[in-house]
Design a binder for these strands. Structure first.
Length: 349
DNA sequence: CTCGTCACGGTTGAG
DNA sequence: CCCTCAACCGTGACG
């Protein structure tokens, strides 16, 4: 698993089958799209399949988030201990109650909402398996009961403003609770800035883009030591960094990708120069690789943690009656700090 | 040529 | 622990 190397797609871009693209690339896709660049051009520029560009943009338009959905795991359990407890109570209060009645009551009593109410069959199963013996008030009782997942994760949406051009035009649209979007996107006003290597490209981000961090421990350490604030933001913790840190590519893999990124001076998007060669700084720990990266914001280096604040919804969870926001929950946390740097493969024409 | 869609082979992680 | 399985992934091809 750790040894999974990236594959190269038809456009020469590197990807890892089954894994999301790095956030930096996702961000760039959205940025370019907002600048009016056509998806087909974005696809070529970033060497990402047009299907993927289409999908990411569609998702962004739909949800306001660039982040990938939650991969793996099971759906949030609807049969939380609290739900089970309530079902038991209903059953005790009325042994003849039907499962569908229980379901209705769960909704009516606000124990569940329409998104997490158990199905009738689930309730039946609960009645059968967990409440069959009412004399045992049990294992699901109380105190150690975790909070309902949805209450936490569903509301933890991290909107992302690709740049200061927020849809509302209010670039400081986030309340004080969110940490400085301005810090996350320092004076990005010009096209060249936007298209250029971004300020969020910190050394670890570079590693992410060009050779994904070799060891998640290292990545974790970097995050912990260098970006402690990341953890205070939105309660993100270690899990928040796993998505991208596991992106299994190695810096040793660099050379195979860098040439593809060889940047053409004539390219309109080529705003950073000579960076490619510095990526392959030999014998250096990946952390140091980005140090030599030059970018237009004049040495402003953003930390991976900063991307947290850069992630935000265009509209805070405007889902409303849209589908349950589940696809972006914990995964968002995970993805947030995975701001890989991005080497823009600008040799495309 | 562009772009939406989907089968495919893959990874992930809760249960 | 290991397994299962349903979620998601990006690619590549089709229309």
């Amino acid at each position: 698993m750790d040894q999974t190397y990236g594959e190269v797609n038809q456009l020469g871009g590197v990807f890892v089958n089954g894994r999301p693209l790095p956030n930096a690339i996702r961000i760039r896709i959205v940025e370019l799209a907002q600048l009016g660049i056509r998806p087909c051009d974005i696809s070529r520029q970033l060497r990402v399949s047009h299907g993927c560009v289409s999908k990411i943009l569609a998702r962004y338009n739909e949800t306001g988030s660039i982040l990938p959905g939650a991969i793996g795991g099971s759906k949030p359990r609807v049969t939380t201990p609290n739900v089970v407890k309530n079902i038991r109570d209903y059953k005790q209060g009325d042994p003849g109650i039907f499962a569908w009645e229980i379901r209705d009551r769960l909704l009516a009593d606000g124990v569940c909402d329409k998104y997490n109410v158990p199905s009738v069959s689930s309730i039946s199963r609960i009645l059968r398996n967990k409440i069959g013996n009412l004399s045992q008030p049990g294992q699901y009782e109380g105190s150690k009961q975790p909070p309902p997942q949805h209450a936490l994760s569903y509301n933890h949406m991290y909107p992302y403003y690709p740049n200061t051009m927020s849809p509302t035009g209010n670039k400081m649209g986030n309340p004080a609770g969110h940490v400085s979007i301005s810090r996350a996107w320092p004076s990005v006003h010009t096209v060249s800035n936007i298209l250029g290597i971004r300020a969020f490209m910190d050394p670890s981000a570079i590693a992410g883009a060009e050779g994904y961090p070799q060891k998640m421990e290292e990545w974790a350490n970097v995050n912990r030591t260098a970006f402690p604030s990341a953890h205070s933001i939105n309660g993100i913790d270690k899990s928040a960094i796993e998505t991208d840190i596991k992106y299994p590519q190695h810096s040793s893999n660099l050379s195979s990708y860098v040439p593809a990124c060889a940047y053409s001076p004539s390219n309109q998007y080529g705003v950073y120069s000579g960076a490619a060669s510095s990526y392959v700084s030999p014998g250096h720990h990946w952390q140091s690789q980005g140090a030599s990266l030059s970018h237009p914001s004049g040495g402003v280096t953003m930390h991976a943690g900063d991307i947290h604040s850069a992630m935000g919804f265009k509209h805070p969870l405007r889902d409303g009656d849209r589908k349950p926001p589940s696809p972006l929950s914990k995964q968002q946390h995970e993805a947030l700090s995975g701001a890989h740097g991005l080497t823009l493969p600008t040799s495309a024409s």
